[in-house]
């Protein structure tokens, strides 16, 4: 294929990747930014979102693919959010959000979710029909119209998030908590409740991203590992806890991942990019775009 169309395809694929990645990473970034908690079970919340989408779709059958999809779009974040709320309330809170303890605990939660899904949902990868399907024919290759919808949906959600964070009282409270927990408490902000909601919201973003992507991929009980690692990378490059940085990083990484692997051996490309990320964290701990937050 000629270079032009090649690049166009790579960019489209990169945007889809970036869309999903930015939503997933945004969740991880919020919990890290506000609570200083690394949630290792984030990928499993993502996986649960996909499994719930499959579940809704398979109950309603292919005839009601669109309704099933809409229901999943609403239900998956809600269920996952409640689950996250529960694990925050009963586990993280009693650990007092100590970084190392929470990492270990969320590894435990990861196993629990994964194994429960294996036992109930089974080991097979299961497809979910897209709510609509049409193929856009470029002169050189074809492309799924649903993928463009995913990009659009992510932009809408991200804009909404930006509005909430930048222009509303909720955003103000979150930023205050992020900047100085004790000071915020002194000003009467209910820290505990903020933490609980932030943790739930973080998980909900992951679930939402999964519902968007599952018609393109499939639901599988081990699908959480890759988004977790990628989200980590994005959050680091973006500057730990910086929302704007995370989104920029998601786009950058999503796009470059697609383009780099066209020129190099893809496995080598993955090695190099992982190594680079580690070095960024070592030599520029505030991230590539990060401003020092605290």
């Amino acid at each position: 294929m000629d270079f032009g169309p090649f690049l166009l395809l790579a960019s489209l694929e990169g945007l889809v990747q970036a869309a999903v990645l930015s939503l997933t990473a945004l969740g991880l970034c919020l919990t890290f930014g506000v609570m200083r908690v690394v949630n290792v079970s984030h990928g499993e919340f993502y996986m649960l979102g996909a499994v719930i989408a499959w579940w809704a779709a398979s109950i309603l059958g292919p005839k009601y693919a669109l309704s099933g999809y809409l229901i999943a779009l609403f239900l998956a974040p809600c269920i996952v959010g409640l689950l996250a709320l529960a694990s925050e309330r009963f586990v993280l809170r009693s650990l007092n959000y100590e970084p190392e303890a929470t990492i270990v605990a969320t590894i435990g939660i990861l196993y629990i979710i994964q194994q429960t899904v294996l036992m109930s949902f089974g080991p097979d990868a299961k497809p979910v029909n897209p709510p609509f399907y049409f193929r856009i024919d470029f002169p050189w290759f074809g492309y799924s119209g649903y993928k463009l919808f995913v990009i659009g949906a992510a932009i809408v959600v991200l804009s909404g998030t930006w509005y909430v964070l930048a222009r509303t009282r909720v955003g103000l409270i979150m930023r205050a908590t992020q900047l100085d927990r004790d000071m915020a408490q002194a000003f009467g902000i209910p820290i505990k409740r903020v933490y609980a909601y932030v943790f739930a919201a973080g998980a909900m973003y992951a679930a939402l991203a999964a519902v968007l992507i599952v018609p393109i991929r499939q639901a599988h009980y081990l699908m959480g590992a890759d988004p977790l690692l990628m989200s980590f990378i994005v959050v680091i490059i973006g500057g730990l806890g910086s929302v704007r940085g995370a989104i920029v990083a998601a786009v950058l990484i999503g796009m470059s991942d697609g383009i780099i692997s066209m020129f190099f051996s893809p496995t080598l490309a993955k090695m190099v990019s992982t190594l680079l990320v580690a070095l960024v964290l070592v030599f520029r701990p505030q991230g590539l775009f990060g401003v020092k937050t605290s």
């Binding site: 294929m1 395809l9 990169g14 290759f141 991929r217 699908m223 893809p266 993955k270």
Partner: peptide
């Protein structure tokens, strides 16, 4: 065209198929 084992999307490898 070798696909890395951790890959979950594949479209971007397909343009490497010679015409």
């Amino acid at each position: 065209i070798a696909i890395p084992p951790t890959e979950s999307s594949f479209t971007r490898y397909l343009p490497r198929i010679p015409r």
